[in-house]
Structure formats: structure tokens, C-alpha cells
């Protein structure tokens, strides 16, 4: 994984944690390590046990067995409360309260003084575009804000006390592309400042671009974890090719794609095809075969395994369907 400082304890260490509800096991023997300064993705389909794992980190739920430490302290330690920022998946604020008063309240719950909180509230509201020149949403009631704006207020509440470790549960759900980008920028800023960010998502695209390391969780178990680079080299690389066709190239290429000597399997996305080469085949041979048939090619690219691909490989269609219990 990335920057590991020997003097700092792990940002998160989960050791064989298990949690069962009345009629199913939500998390079984999950172990994880997140070094400080990392952006860490917890990936998995709905119902895989992401939210349960996160709630146990935050001591909102108690594990049935196993140990969790954060920043070197056992989960639930009172010193942790003020050093960790948490944005739950189930998001809500006091609807009738004024935005500034809600944020001041959240800040004070994290041990900030009123004046200190006010200063930081201004900073975050300006940064998230809720307070600029003519507009000032800090005086509005929460219920008068749009959903996206409420989500920004919540994010501000998570960040007010400048936490060392930030835990975001499905932070992108319900955000429009502009706001999602603002959130991604904030996460990358946190990494630049050396903070640790752990977030859960099923949006692979976002995870792929932001994370240093990920864990893929399905049916309550970790099915793959490690740095993004290590995962990619482990799950594919040299023998994956992306081809984008032009004109009627897709039809002309069909015999080549169905040639078992060359292509082990392919994922058909229309004019774009992701190809797994057969065991002994070379990308070069494939390209020659396509050119020989006068297939019009717009792009021919060697692929790293996408996180999406790894995810599907590891979780499989069954894993996605098995995710039936309410929370991830």
C-alpha cells in the first residue's frame, strides 16, 4: 500500500470481526488494515456488510466477536469521538433548525467551542458554495435547502472538527455530477493533507480514480483487498485488450472474436469490446487478424483490469443478487 509512516499507528485495524443479526450473518470474520494517509475504498454490492462494518468502526454497533482499533485506540474509546469524522449512509439533519445552528451543534458535539465552530462553519460553507457574495444559506432552515445542499451541509458537519480519520458511507449516492466532483476534490485535498479517508461505495468508477487501496466485500466477507496497483496486476493486465470499432467493423470482426484460439471471452459493449485473450495468444496476433479482415479500428488498447471487472469477477452475479438485507 502507500505512504506508511512507521511512527503512526494504523488508521484502522479490523481483526476477525463478526456480527450476526436475528436471521443472518451480516459480517463474518472480516479483517482489514488501513495505513494512515490512505484513501481506502470499501466496495461491495448492497447488503454485503459495508454499513455494518462501518457502524462497528464507529462503535454504533458492537461486534459479536473480533477487535477493531482506530488510530491505535479500541473502537468506542472516548478520545476517538473527536478525532474521527463520520458521514452515515442514512443521512438526515434537524429539519426545522437553521443551518448554522445545526452545524454549530455538530461542531460542539465534537468538542469545538462556539466561536471556533463558527469560524470553521464559514470556511466550509464558502468552500462548498453555500455561502458566497450575495447568497448565504447559513441563515436558512435545513428544510428549505435542496437535497444536494443538505448533503453538503452534512459533509461540512463531518469535516468541521478537522478529523484525522474520515469515514464516509456511500458519500456519492444522491449527488449530481457537479456535487460529486466537489466531494471527490475534497477527499483528494484530505489525502494531500495526510488525512485518512475510508469510504464505502458501489460506484467503481469513483473508487478507481480516488482510492489508494480497496477491499471488496461480498456476503459479509472480504473477497479481495490490497493496493489498487497490486490488485490490478493480480487480476489481469497483459492479456486484456480494449477495441473500439469504426463503421461496420464490429460485424467484420465477429469471426475473429469467436476464434477460441485467439479470444478466451469478450465483453460486448456494442462498438466497444473488452477482450480476454486466450492463454497463448498475443495482442499483436489479434491486431493482425483484425487488420487482415479490413476491420476499421478507432482504438486498440492494452487494458489493465478495471476495478469494475475485478469486482464482477470476485463478487459475481450471485454475490450481487445475494445482497438482500437492507443495508450494505
Amino acid at each position: 500500500m502507500t505512504v506508511t509512516s512507521p511512527t503512526l499507528p494504523l488508521a484502522l485495524h479490523i481483526d476477525r470481526v463478526r456480527k450476526a443479526y436475528a436471521n443472518h450473518v451480516a459480517v463474518r470474520d472480516v479483517s482489514l488494515s488501513v495505513p494512515p494517509g490512505t484513501v481506502y475504498g470499501l466496495l461491495g454490492p448492497n447488503g454485503a456488510g459495508k454499513t455494518t462494518t462501518i457502524r462497528m468502526m464507529l462503535n454504533i454497533l458492537r461486534p459479536d466477536s473480533g477487535r477493531i482499533t482506530m488510530l491505535g485506540l479500541p473502537a468506542g474509546h472516548s478520545d476517538l469521538l473527536n478525532r474521527v469524522g463520520y458521514l452515515p449512509e442514512e443521512r438526515g439533519l434537524y429539519k426545522k433548525m437553521q443551518v448554522r445552528r445545526v452545524l454549530r451543534f455538530l461542531g460542539r458535539l465534537k468538542g469545538l467551542s462556539g466561536a471556533d465552530a463558527d469560524r470553521r462553519i464559514d470556511h466550509w460553507l464558502e468552500r462548498l458554495g453555500l455561502r458566497s457574495g450575495g447568497e448565504d444559506w447559513s441563515q436558512a432552515r435545513v428544510e428549505d435547502l435542496s437535497r444536494g445542499m443538505q448533503q453538503k451541509v452534512q459533509f461540512a458537519g463531518t469535516m468541521l472538527h478537522d478529523p484525522e480519520l474520515v469515514v464516509l458511507d456511500e458519500p456519492f449516492s444522491g449527488l449530481d455530477p457537479v456535487n460529486a466532483q466537489a466531494l471527490k476534490d475534497s477527499v483528494l485535498d484530505l489525502r494531500r493533507m495526510g488525512r485518512t479517508v475510508i469510504f464505502s461505495t458501489h460506484v467503481m468508477d469513483a473508487a478507481e480514480r480516488m482510492c489508494d487501496a480497496v477491499a471488496i466485500i461480498a456476503r459479509g466477507e472480504i473477497v479481495a483487498d490490497g493496493s489498487l496497483r497490486a490488485l490490478k496486476s493480480q487480476y489481469g493486465g497483459a492479456n486484456r485488450v480494449l477495441v473500439i470499432f469504426g463503421g461496420n467493423g464490429r460485424d467484420l470482426a465477429r469471426p475473429v472474436l469467436e476464434d477460441r484460439e485467439l479470444v478466451a471471452r469478450f465483453e460486448d459493449l456494442g462498438q466497444q469490446v473488452e477482450i480476454d485473450l486466450a492463454a497463448n495468444a498475443q495482442a499483436q496476433t489479434l491486431l493482425q487478424a483484425l487488420v487482415a479482415r479490413e476491420v476499421e479500428i478507432v482504438r486498440f488498447d492494452r487494458l489493465e483490469a478495471s476495478l469494475h471487472r475485478i469486482f464482477l469477477d470476485k463478487v459475481g452475479a450471485t454475490g450481487v443478487e445475494a445482497g438482500v438485507s437492507g443495508h450494505g
Binding site: 457502524r55 464507529l58 454504533i60 469521538l81 474521527v84 463520520y86 458521514l87 452515515p88 442514512e90 443521512r91 438526515g92 439533519l93 434537524y94 429539519k95 455538530l106 458535539l109 465534537k110 452534512q154 458537519g157
Partner: peptide
């Protein structure tokens, strides 16, 4: 109301 508006989880992570 706190439960319905889902604000409780946010608060319970702090106190």
C-alpha cells in the same frame, strides 16, 4: 423525529 429524519446516527457517532 430524530429517528425518522435519520439524524440520530450522525449524533450517535459523536456522543
Amino acid at each position: 423525529e430524530e429517528k425518522q429524519s435519520r439524524v440520530s446516527e450522525l449524533v450517535l457517532a459523536s456522543v
